[in-house]
């Protein structure tokens, strides 16, 4: 059972709403960035390495 009687009660939290919601918002945003950032870095790194590798290979085949 939800503790609060209404959505506005949940939002206000008898005056403590701003503190609680701020903490949860910062927590979730920071975690989201911490998860997405390495995933994005890994994907970018793979793309960069692949470009370099295929450039290297086409160089070698043109020299032959």
């Amino acid at each position: 059972m939800m503790h609060f009687d209404s959505w506005s009660d949940l939002w206000v939290m008898a005056g403590h709403g701003p503190y609680v919601w701020f903490c949860y918002a910062v927590f979730l945003c920071v975690l989201a960035v911490m998860v997405v950032h390495p995933l994005w870095r890994l994907a970018a790194l793979k793309r960069r390495l692949k470009r370099r590798l295929s450039a290297l290979e086409s160089n070698q085949t043109s020299e032959e």
């Binding site: 949940l10 609680v20 903490c23």
Partner: peptide, 30 residues
């Protein structure tokens, strides 16, 4: 990720308030 989202919802809305601190104690769950 699923556990954190569920845990946040649990902590924010489905736990009783602290008898002395009221609702501010919900920050404890993070």
């Amino acid at each position: 990720i699923a556990m954190i989202v569920l845990g946040c919802i649990w902590g924010i809305a489905f736990t009783p308030p602290d008898f002395r601190q009221g609702n501010s104690y919900r920050i404890i769950y993070i």
